[in-house]
């Protein structure tokens, strides 16, 4: 369970990105966060694993993120897999090496130093690759893959952590519509099959409608909508966006 209590984020430059957020996300939920760019979606996601200077209280399965020491933060992060808009793969390294990065916090320091990965970690990495269906590319350079394949490697890296929570920050924003749907389906399936709590930032409303269960709308760093995605109507979106919906807000609209 993730619980935000009066959580705020002010960046060193003075930019207030999140103000007084109260939220509870139960285990196994599939949550989609929408909002304009700059509304605080990324910040909300990153306050879960302590990547941003957050005040108030954020607890992850009972562990407090705010004011946690370095090693406490590391322990929290071990259970949280993250997926990025730009994939954040090491292009020169093999897919396998990238997926194994998810295991770094679990292996002894000397083993990672010498690159002597235990067999069970390799097995976990291969299983993760199988789950996203690109195990045959395991020994290919990451930079040689297409965008969609790279993002699946990103998902596999998160899965290799054997996480309880997955945070996905605009996972399809750099992908074409067809691949976007594939990646979203992968995430949905993983959530259902493994029961991993999944929180996704999305820009496109139709993708949010098609795959989300619970929808959280952010505007100017505050939660302005929180409810079942089936109940949401165009007025709610107008409230979240502060304007009418345009084709740019839809994946299909943007594609045409």
């Amino acid at each position: 369970m993730i619980r935000f209590t009066n959580a705020s984020v002010v960046y060193p430059g003075g930019l207030k990105a999140l103000s007084g957020v109260d939220l509870t996300i139960e285990d196994g939920e599939f949550v989609v966060i929408v909002g304009l760019s700059g509304a605080g979606k990324s910040t909300l996601l990153r306050s879960v694993n302590g990547l941003v200077p957050v005040t108030g209280s954020v607890t992850v399965n009972g562990a407090e993120v705010v004011g946690a020491s370095k090693s406490e933060i590391r322990a929290i992060r071990t259970d949280i897999g993250m997926i990025f808009q730009t994939f954040n793969l090491v292009g020169r390294a093999t897919v396998m090496a990238n997926v194994l990065m998810g295991r770094l916090s679990m292996v002894p320091r000397w083993r990672s130093m010498l690159g002597l990965w235990p067999a069970e970690d390799r097995e976990l990495a291969l299983q993760a690759l199988e789950r996203v269906g690109i195990v045959e590319k395991a020994y290919v350079r990451a930079s040689d893959l297409s965008g969609g394949q790279q993002q699946r490697v990103g998902i596999a890296r998160a899965l290799a952590q054997d996480p309880k929570i997955i945070l996905a920050d605009e996972p399809v924003a750099s992908l074409d519509p067809v691949t976007s749907h594939m990646v979203m389906r992968d995430l949905q399936r993983i959530n259902r099959e493994l029961g991993i709590t999944t929180i996704i930032n999305l820009h496109f409303l139709d993708l949010a409608r098609a795959y989300g269960k619970r929808l959280i709308g952010l505007r100017d760093g505050q939660v302005v909508y929180d409810g079942d995605i089936a109940d949401v109507n165009d007025d709610d979106f107008r409230e979240i966006y502060g304007r009418a919906i345009t084709p740019d807000d839809l994946l299909e609209g943007a594609a045409t």
Binding site: T94, M96, L126, E130, G133, V135, E136, K137, A138, Y139
Partner: peptide, 11 residues
């Protein structure tokens, strides 16, 4: 799906 065999060249 078949798992590929780890290549020996890098080693």
């Amino acid at each position: 799906m078949n798992r590929p065999i780890a290549p020996t060249a890098p080693r």
